[in-house]
Structure formats: C-alpha cells, structure tokens
Nucleic acid binder design. Structure first.
Lengths: 136, 136
DNA sequence: ATTCATGCAAAGGGTTTGCAGGAAA
DNA sequence: TTTCCTGCAAACCCTTTGCATGAAT
C-alpha cells in the first residue's frame, strides 16, 4: 500500500477487471455492511470461479482507492459501499451493522486537533446496542 | 436435594487470582492502550511464568466485568484501563492510540436511538490521523 | 508486449481452547 | 472439597502471500 511519490502523471496502477467491478457493484447495492466471506458468496453468483484471495485483494485495493470503506469493529472486518460521511450502529448480540440515523458532525475534527498534536484526518462514531431482531 | 433459595446471592463467578490482579494493575497504570502481547510483556516482569493464553482469558473476563475496555480498531485488539467516558485518536501510520482531548457527548445515544429501532447502550468515537512522531 | 490480476493452495498471525495439574474460596 | 484458573500447546479462523497462468491496456 504505497503511494506514488512523483509529480508526473502516475502510470495506470489499477485495472478494471470483471472481478473488481462486480465486487464494487455488489457492495454498492446492499446496505448490510457484509464481511469478506459474505461478499465472496454474493460475487460467486456472478463469477462462480472467483477465489476468496481475489476478493480480499480487491477489497483492499478498493478501500485504498477510497471507493469503499473498511469497518474494523468485531472479529471480521466489514465493508461499506457508501463512502459518504455517516455513522454506524453495531448489534452486540449478532454483530450486524446498520447506518446510524444522525447527521455527521463536521466540527469534531477541528476540536480534536486543537491540543492533540495529531494531524486529524477523520473520525468515525460507532454506536453499540441491541438490534430489533435480537431484542426479543 | 436441598432447596436452592432463589433469592440468594448468585455464586461467586470470578476469583481474584494473582494473574488477574496484576493484569488489571498494569493496565491501570499506563495510558498507552496496549495490545495483548504488550500486556503479556508487562505482566511477565511480575509473573515470569504466566502464559499468553491466561492473559487473553483474563482480558476477556475483565472486559466482560466492565473493568477494562476492549478497543477493536486495527488488526490487534487494544485494551484500556480507563473505563470513564472518553474518545480516542489512532495514528494511521504506527497504530498508536491516545485519548482524544474532547468532552464526551452524552446526548448522542438518545439521538441515535430515536429512529433506529435499536436499543442503544453506548457509543465510541475514534479519530484517525498522524501522530507527532510519525509526522516528520 | 507489458504489467497487473487471478486462482489455487499454503503460510501467517492474532486469538481461542482442550487438558491435566494447581489454587482460590 | 469444590469450582475456577493456570500453563502448555495445539487448534482455529480470518487474512495474506507465492507462484504460474491469464487478461487488460
């Protein structure tokens, strides 16, 4: 995961393969924040011979390109095709992730950078709770 | 077949072993949000024959008891002996975690629960950025 | 033709677990 | 004595990677 340091036009680094395109398409049409193996299943309906390694490699590349978001909450990573600013709620019982119904708070980054010494590039809020399905 | 008085105190479930006590003590005296293997090193200075498995088991129990917080950001989990409400900043370059210098926002949980259907139990904010050490 | 990506399978690495002996209560 | 805990090591599981082949440009 290295950047391109030069000022010239960077060579084309990424190709648009069928595998990469289908992975991105599938991710964009669901709102379920699937894990890599769930994406593997989804994509295999279109490309039965795709390998799990290819799925992982493409998820890495797509998130490097900023086309998807990688969520590192539980034991498996989850992925989100919605790259607009928004927050999440995670169910403590079943690990499901849904979008949180609150507006982004753009002022937070500035506040955090004030005395931290860090260069702040972003933030994410994750709520925890119990989802309707688990809330028997 | 002695009767079990249903109103009695439930049996003691957790013992205070030396290993558990030292792990908690070590975690409370640093502000570095160490990973399990870092805690393993810290604790081995006091209990050289402790095993890494014991460290993992106790970290799990302590976080179940609410005595420590488990942070699930990067590829390794990190642990925090400060259970008061506060947020974190994570360095994208070295994965270091420090406390964020902003006040907790207690109203967030209510906002999030309004139309989510979830029972919201808490939230956490993680800022991302580059720490002073990595910001050469 | 060049260079990047794929499929397959094996390796990696953090975390969990089975077991027999040990120690809190 | 009872029940929980420990150390050790193996198992687990998600993820990454090496290699030869295949495909995008």
């Amino acid at each position: 995961m290295k950047g391109e340091p030069s000022t010239e036009n960077h060579r084309q680094k990424y190709r648009l393969t069928r595998q990469r395109r289908v992975i991105l398409d599938e991710l964009r049409k669901v709102h379920t924040h699937p894990s890599a193996d769930e994406i593997y299943s989804m994509v295999r309906r279109h490309i039965p011979r795709i390998s799990l390694g290819t799925v992982y490699r493409n998820l890495e590349i797509l998130s490097e390109q900023g086309k998807i978001i990688k969520l590192s909450g539980g034991k498996q990573k989850r992925f989100d095709g919605n790259t607009g600013p928004h927050y999440h709620i995670r169910c403590l019982a079943c690990d499901k992730v849904v979008d949180a119904p609150i507006d982004p708070i753009p002022t937070l980054n500035l506040q955090a950078s004030r005395l931290a010494g860090f260069t702040i590039t972003g933030h994410h809020i994750e709520f925890t709770g119990i989802c309707p399905d688990c809330n028997t």
